[in-house]
Design a protein around this nucleic acid. Structure first.
Lengths: 173, 173
DNA sequence: TGAAGCATGTAATTTGTTACATGATTGG
DNA sequence: CCAATCATGTAACAAATTACATGCTTCA
């Protein structure tokens, strides 16, 4: 129950537990892969560690819940303190540092890679990614805007931007 | 002279040493802050460690060069092996994983933050950032395209995209 | 002449990545 | 019935962040 610094990973765990009501870490891992993981992925080993940390801090509680086959498993859920922490994070709109692009391709470009060759390779990859995001977006149909929908739209917009960017360089060859 | 895995940080150090011919880590830190650090920042503690690692791997050499005031200082430069490593990285256009957005603001949005309030705050921050990038871009005048110029253009394009995105949400309030 | 800040690092802590382990379930 | 893969984790290691340390310079 000691106090701890909450990181983005913490809020991913708290946020998903709020949605799912309760879940095993394995379940969280699967949900992450399909949702928030598109713009902020977390390896499963970190989810386990984070669940433990949050439990030690009293923000989640876990209880044993063996599988039908008798295998060991733990299920986690939010505590009242966990809900409060999540709520106040969500309400706080103060802007810390803005995110960086951190694109390995840009790094090569910066240090003198051939724009046309590099652009062609990157372009293909971003086109694939864009197509996948657009398919997901289509699957939303015309539901009312929600967090997941809005973030997916952001993802699509930035992929389009990458496609435009590398297209320009690929064509320059 | 053992073999080591080269990371993006490695190439930042190698790439800058190629440009500067030779430099202290402190000098690298300053150059990073003004150039590549705009889309891929590296804390100075990491630059020190990386210089040591690269030296152990034989890709850079350092020699003592006390300051005028008699203070300890080391200057690093590329070795032939370092130049080769940099060159072959630059030529390799294979695409690993694509980068993620990893924006804390998106995370809040995903987990249900109020779009209008969040958008207003983020919008202001991104507008400032965009203005700064545009000023830098203007400072380039009309030099011929170069790595640094192209990456700055990418930065501007993505900042514009963020401005558009959060504008839409801020307006929705 | 003393405080602020520049120059030069080291150390501690937290995160993230990769690899390993192993029982249950399912498809061929 | 056996191989693949799903489910459930642990452990080791590498990288990133944050904090600390401390001698020089400069400027009020």
């Amino acid at each position: 129950m000691s106090t701890m610094r909450l990181t983005p990973t913490s809020y991913i765990v708290l946020g998903l537990l709020e949605r799912l009501e309760s879940a095993s870490v394995y379940a969280l891992k699967q949900v992450v892969a399909l949702s928030v993981g598109n713009f902020w992925s977390v390896p499963h080993s970190q989810l386990y560690r984070e669940a433990d940390r949050l439990e030690a801090a009293g923000l989640v509680v876990g209880h044993d819940d063996p599988t039908p086959g008798g295998r060991h498993r733990r299920i986690f859920g939010l505590t009242a303190a966990g809900r409060r922490a999540l709520g106040s994070w969500r309400r706080d709109v103060a802007v810390e540092r803005l995110p960086e692009l951190r694109d390995p391709g840009l790094l090569k470009l910066f240090f003198g890679a051939d724009p046309a060759r590099l652009g062609a390779a990157r372009l293909a990859a971003h086109r694939r990614q864009l197509a996948e995001y657009e398919a997901r977006l289509a699957a939303f149909g015309d539901e009312r805007p929600s967090g997941p929908l809005l973030t997916l739209q952001a993802g699509v917009a930035h992929e389009r931007e990458w496609v435009r960017f590398w297209e320009g360089l690929a064509a320059s060859g």
